[in-house]
Design a protein around this nucleic acid. Structure first.
Lengths: 364, 364
DNA sequence: ACAACTTGCTTAATCGTTTAAGCAGTTGTG
DNA sequence: CACAACTGCTTAAACGATTAAGCAAGTTGT
């Protein structure tokens, strides 16, 4: 056992302090200070490796800290420093591969910089989202990284975050009007990718089951769809374009409506994988040949797209990269004092992953 | 505009304070105290509705608080009260329906009681789990609700939680030796349910792709399998029993091994849905009739089990109820001072959901 | 030899809230 | 009328860590 100090006196204090460990509270810098007979301030500095504290003292402090199992009280230092080193993350749901992967990457980057993250889910409910924001602000987070619920139109609560003077970073489901950082893929361009691909497969009447127009990303996908269709001089028919909640059930519903048309489409581009899955089920139930009769493309590259039969073509949103960029953007913003927010978009190129559901060379 | 006080003097102070809102820091109880010319202590009490503060003062304080957009500093009160009102949740992954649903229910209950939760994921990595525990303890959480990573054998870090004197609640993946609360389903009994069902379908040679034995729940499923097989006097063959990581890939691998047997099984019970999916893929690739030639049952009732074709029979683990019970158990424990931990198991009955993959009346 | 640094600490204030203790003034009780 | 109890506040300490300011002793430069 190496005791950093040689006086019997200090040794006695140490063992007394160790004895007290059992009954009492947690060890504080004061306890360490008492053992070594120096001031708490010196202990604090020693623990932070302050250059004005002698190497000998630093070592002694660290030794005693370890012996007494000292754990810094984060609340105290956060209060004093005005920084909690916590970052709030709000997502519509965690049980989606996209969001779970984004979170994982945010966490990885931020942990390295000493931040911890608080994950909350809105379950696509505006009210829950507001509660989450309040809870995070209440917890004194140093910033918030969020993707909005589908329902969210009123931006007051996001303005509230801004008014706190902490960085707000949006990803995937964002909103220009807030004038904050945004990270996402190029939804407009993604639609083009999909339409090009379907045209290449020989499709001539392409439907789109889109998300709600009021959500920017879905609106962009719809705009992309419309423009790409026009570009290829394909029929742009009102009955081929739907707004949907993009759940499995609604995917089924909209697909049924498409099948009920006199003039059926020969391809369907669905703006979400879950709805695409619903559409797939309906197609199979109706014994429709996929992709020969109707080709299908989803969006999001959820793992199940490669599990179902036929496998579903989809758009890879680079969730990992989105998470990374969101975290890095936060780190940049938080360095500024005072925090300045400006509209700053990072748009990644998406990638179309062609699978059986839209590959005419399959299942001939 | 209703001003709770009638003196011009106070009115002036209020408008001055409101003016200061822009440039300065956040509003504190001190600011409110200054406006009303009372002590910060009185403000604090007023905000908490202390009976020793007059109704008039309480109203005035609340009015000014609203006007100055006062938001309590959680760090300060947490420091003072020695309670952060934060609960840490550790799960192996969030992108599983089971865990995501458990979390949702924990959150719902705890939010009502004024707690917020910090969700962390271990990604089935022991190291990550240790980091998470450290991060949560560092954040001064008031308790931890966790489900262990598959890798976790060394329990030192969990002992560390206990040594902090905060409640530790385990669910699903637990460990008796820690002597803490545990909430889960009856895994042993679930295996019986499955075997009974398969026997009822006429299966006579039932294989089990199980999880790792060192994880209690998987061990229980294996024991249940073995005992149920014995009970029905079916062949209990070493080559029919595997330990697996239960990923899709490993499910594929183990299924391939089963197909390579001279004496193939006529049913496979897989201890996890993802591995069951892998097994399903292999069966389909080998044009094996499901369930006539080989029946299949999974575990966990992940949503995709009802999406794939054929749909996969599985065990519903009552994730919602597990989350609720975990939260309620925490609330009970945290009330005790000092917190007492004892081995206390809440075991829920699981439910077998029979789908096409093990229903002989289907696909004849 | 004396100013000017440097070293290695201490002192005391501070972050924002809570709370035990206490103090006037009022009301109630026997 | 005296004493108790209540009302409505104030004072001051505390939670644990950080940090600006300062001080004493030693070191360096001229």
């Amino acid at each position: 056992m190496i005791i950093p100090t040689n006086t019997l006196f200090l040794l006695k204090r140490l063992s007394k302090a160790i004895k007290n460990l059992g009954n009492k509270k947690r060890t504080t810098i004061k306890d360490i200070a008492n053992v070594l007979d120096i001031s708490p301030a010196a202990v604090s500095k020693a623990l932070h490796g302050d250059s004005r504290i002698s190497a000998k003292t630093i070592e002694a402090v660290k030794e005693v800290a370890k012996k007494l199992n000292y754990q810094p009280n984060h609340l105290a230092s956060a209060l004093r420093k005005g920084k909690s080193n916590l970052v709030g993350v709000i997502v519509p749901k965690t049980n989606s591969n996209f969001f779970s992967s984004v979170i994982q990457n945010i966490e990885e980057i931020l942990n390295k910089e000493g931040y911890n993250i608080i994950i909350t889910q809105s379950n696509e409910s505006f009210k829950k989202e507001c509660n989450n924001i309040d809870a995070l602000l209440f917890t004194q987070v140093d910033g918030i990284i969020a993707s909005m619920a589908n329902e969210t139109i009123d931006l007051d609560y996001y303005e509230k975050i801004k008014s706190y003077g902490i960085p707000l970073i949006l990803f995937d489901r964002g909103e220009n009007n807030l004038n904050v950082d945004y990270i996402g893929i190029d939804d407009y361009q993604s639609s083009h990718l999909i339409i090009e691909h379907l045209v290449g497969q020989g499709c001539k009447r392409i439907a789109h089951i889109g998300g709600f127009k009021h959500t920017r990303i879905y609106n962009n996908r719809i705009r992309g769809y419309v423009d790409a269709i026009k570009k290829h001089n394909l029929p742009l028919d009102d009955e081929l374009l739907f707004e949907s909640s993009l759940t499995i059930e609604d995917g089924r519903e909209k697909m049924n409506q498409l099948l009920a048309l006199k003039n059926r489409p020969d391809a369907v581009y669905v703006a979400g994988d879950y709805a695409a899955l619903g559409a797939l089920q309906v197609l199979k139930e109706n014994r429709i040949n996929i992709p020969k009769d109707i080709a299908l493309v989803g969006f999001g590259n959820e793992p199940f797209t490669s599990m179902v039969s036929p496998t579903i073509s989809s758009i890879n949103q680079h969730s990992g990269e989105i998470g990374r960029q969101a975290a890095l953007t936060f780190l940049e913003r938080v360095k500024m004092t005072p925090v300045k927010q400006t509209l700053n978009k990072i748009i990644l190129n998406a990638e179309l992953i062609v699978r059986d559901s839209s590959n005419i060379n399959w299942n001939l």
